[in-house]
Write a protein that binds this DNA or RNA. Structure first.
Length: 264
DNA sequence: CTTGAGATTTAACCCGTCAC
DNA sequence: GTGACGGGTTAAATCTCAAG
């Protein structure tokens, strides 16, 4: 049952890619289900009833198209307003960490990770680690894939010897976000399909016990870790938090995909 | 701040009608 | 023929959200 705030909601978040705000609608439950397009009606329905909207078959059909091996990938990046490394632009998303869970057709899963905390330009070692971790025939899966694709394209443009492989990786990247958005809604999401909002409605996985809880926290930890006056002990501690967080993000995608495909 | 997708809003345009 | 006024379609601009 609900783990969120009291119902009914009186403040409606933007939901379903649709803005109800700014139209004088302050209570989602006042909307007339019959007049809404199905895309919005299912959100109102799930909110009224507390019964999640779950199209298992639709989700299964979408996910089963992704050929094995599957590489569930997540980057952590840093973006400096004033570029820190030669050849980077202001606000360019530079990856200093990634996690990837590689899933074989038989269900076997191996985990690979990369983390740079020495303060040097992490891009070459990151690209090399990607090449080593992700099989050339893998379907790469990310949550809000345009972000991961963008990082991959940036890396590909930088290293001619890895250009084809990295570009190919970007082309093989698919997105779990629309699958979730189209086939699942729980009212505790309150209009959000971010991984942090969705995950607790499907599983008991939780970010609250982690040292690093979100992307912003990861960036803060990274910045502290690369400072010269940060002790080795502290750096190790920060790195440990980063590793756990990033690994949780990719594991969360695996868990979500399994949940989405599982019978109700 | 970035990018991309998708939804929404605004602007532009075409066409028929009607009064002058 | 011309100008004002719809109504309906379409294109372009704007907004939101996801990721970090």
């Amino acid at each position: 049952m609900p783990v969120g705030p009291e119902w009914p909601v009186t403040v409606l978040p933007n939901g379903g890619g649709k803005s109800w705000l700014g139209k004088g609608i302050t209570d989602l439950l006042e909307l007339d289900e019959a007049t809404l397009p199905e895309k919005h009606a299912r959100i109102v329905r799930a909110t009224r009833s507390g019964e999640p909207d779950h199209d298992v078959e639709g989700a299964r059909r979408a996910i089963e198209k992704w050929a094995y091996p599957r590489a569930w990938l997540d980057f952590e990046t840093i973006a400096f307003a004033v570029p820190r490394w030669i050849g980077t632009r202001p606000y360019q998303q530079v990856p200093f960490q990634f996690s990837v869970h590689v899933e074989e057709a038989d269900g076997a899963i191996t985990h690979h990770e990369f983390l740079s905390l020495n303060g040097a330009d992490p891009r070459r070692s990151c690209a090399e680690a990607l090449m080593a971790a992700i099989p050339v025939d893998a379907t790469v899966i990310a949550y809000n894939a345009p972000f991961e694709k963008g990082v991959l394209r940036e890396l590909s443009a930088l290293f001619p010897e890895m250009q084809d492989a990295l570009l190919d990786m970007a082309h093989r990247t698919v997105d779990l976000l629309p699958v979730t958005r189209n086939h699942w809604y729980h009212r505790d999401q309150r209009g959000s399909w971010s991984i942090k909002a969705v995950l607790p409605t499907m599983t008991s996985l939780d970010y609250s016990d982690l040292e690093v809880k979100d992307g912003t926290g990861a960036q803060e930890a990274y910045l502290e870790a690369i400072r010269p006056d940060t002790s080795d002990e502290r750096r190790t501690f920060l790195g440990d938090g980063l590793t756990k967080y990033c690994a949780q993000d990719t594991w969360a995608m695996v868990a979500m995909a399994r949940f989405l495909s599982a019978a109700a």
